[in-house]
Every structure is written in structure tokens, then in C-alpha cells.
Amino acid sequence: MADQFDPRMTGSRQPGPTYAGDVRSEAFDAGLRSYMLSIYNYMASGILLTGLVAMLFSWGGAESMAAQVFGGPGIMKWVIILSPLAIVFAMSFGQNRFSTPALQFMFWAFATLMGLSMSTIFLVYTGESIALTFFSTAAAFAGLSLWGYTTKKDLSGWGSFLIMGVIGLLVAMLLNTFLLPPEANYTMNLVISGLGVLIFAGLTAYDTQKLKSMYAYVAGTDMMGKTVILGALSLYLDFINMFQFLLSFLGSQE
């Protein structure tokens, strides 16, 4: 240890605890980057799959499969709408029981079902406004996630507040759908959409920092692959929800 302060050592890096620590730090940073990149790749692939399925299912306008399924009274539309929610609950609460390949399959199934569920936006909004909203959401998501990854500010205190905000949104949406008079729906929709954008913007930064901090606990363990899939699911949900709420502002109807 004394050699570190020996003037004769100036200009030459000697192996020792500090050097070994630097090597471990570089290896940790490289592993962290690979881990986060895997999460982003899964998330982006899921969003791409959802978009492709939504476009194909809505192809043909009023004659599309989406118009026929969601325009009728059949039970199929409720299966498509509720199935993604069931998969999210299964993945979140059953992660310890499922293998990594099983979670991967469930993630791709979820992204596919979300595409079927979201296909109706192509029947309601113009393609140009959907594209504008998508790229606006992508830019906002990238900035928020980058900030969550790089900030030194501890965002863990945001978690309970943001989850309460999501629950409040769900309650407000139910009230708006079933209890409020039609003349109040439009204004309430705008309020809900504005709050939704803000809440999921906050969740994007919060989830990114949370996933980054989890790497130290899962690196080199069997949970690594599962954490990547579940992390991709979290960021996917943040992106999709922010996109849908933002579409209420930027979307131009057909």
C-alpha cells in the first residue's frame, strides 16, 4: 500500500488493489451495458411485432378482421382484450415457477395479442397521426430512459406514488366509461390522457433505474435471463401506454 505514494512509482501503473478494482469495474460496466442492451432489444422487438400484427389485422379498413371482431357482439373481442392482462399477471407473479424459455414464449404471445388488441387504432386514426405519435413517443421514451439510466438522483421514492397514479387512472377510466354523462366524457378523456402521459413518463425513468440497479443482484445467476424478459415487459408497457395516451392528443381521426 505504501508503494502507491512512493515518488519513484510516478508515471508507471503498478498492479495492486486499485488496478484490480478498475478491472472489476470495467467488467461490471461491460456486463451492465450488455444486460441493458438485451432488455432494450427484447422491448423493441416486442413493439415491432405488436405494430406489424396490428397493421396486418386491420388491413382492409371496414372489411378487415379487426373491424369484424371488434365490431360485433362476439366473445372473441373480450378474449383478445383481456388475454394480454392475464399474461402480464402470470409473468409477474409466476416468474419463479416459469423457466426463461417459457417467459420468452409468454412475452412474444403477449406482444402478438397486444397487436390484435391495438389494431382498432388503425380503424380510428389516420396513418400519418399514428406515425407522428409513435416517433414522438419513441423520442420521449429514449430521453426519459437515458435520464433514468444516467441520473445520480435516487428515483426509488417515485415507485409507490407512480403505482398509486396508475391505480387512480384505472378508476378514473372506469368512472368515465360507466358513470359520467356523455357530455363530460371528452373533457375527462383529455384529463386522463394528460395524467397518463405524465405517469408513464415517470415510470419509464423509474423502471430504467430500477432495472439498472438490479443487475448487481442477478449478474451471473439463473435469474439473469428472467430479469431481462421481465424488464423488457416493464419498459414495453411504459412505451405502449405512453403511446396510447399521447395518441389522444396527437391522433387525427379518420
Rank of each mutant, 00 (worst) to 15 (best):
S12N: 08
G94C: 10
G225H: 05
V171E: 02
A30R: 13
S156N: 14
G231C: 03
D154A: 14
L52S: 10
Y215C: 06
F243L: 10
V191K: 13
F161Y: 11
G194W: 01
M1F: 13
L56K: 03
G51T: 13
M43Q: 09
S193V: 08
G31L: 10
M106I: 09
K226S: 06
A44N: 08
M9G: 12
G194I: 04
A86F: 14
I121H: 06
N185D: 11
I81A: 12
M242L: 15
M214C: 00
L180R: 07
Y206F: 15
E26A: 13
G225V: 05
S117Y: 04
L113I: 06
M43Y: 03
S12A: 08
P17C: 00
F93L: 15
T204A: 13
N189C: 05
S145Y: 00
L37N: 11
R24T: 10
M91I: 09
S45Y: 08
Y125F: 15
A139Q: 04
R13T: 13
F141L: 08
V218K: 00
N96D: 15
Y215A: 03
M118D: 00
T50Q: 07
W158F: 14
G72H: 12
A30T: 12
G115S: 13
S99W: 06
T204P: 04
L85R: 02
S193W: 03
G196D: 00
F200Q: 01
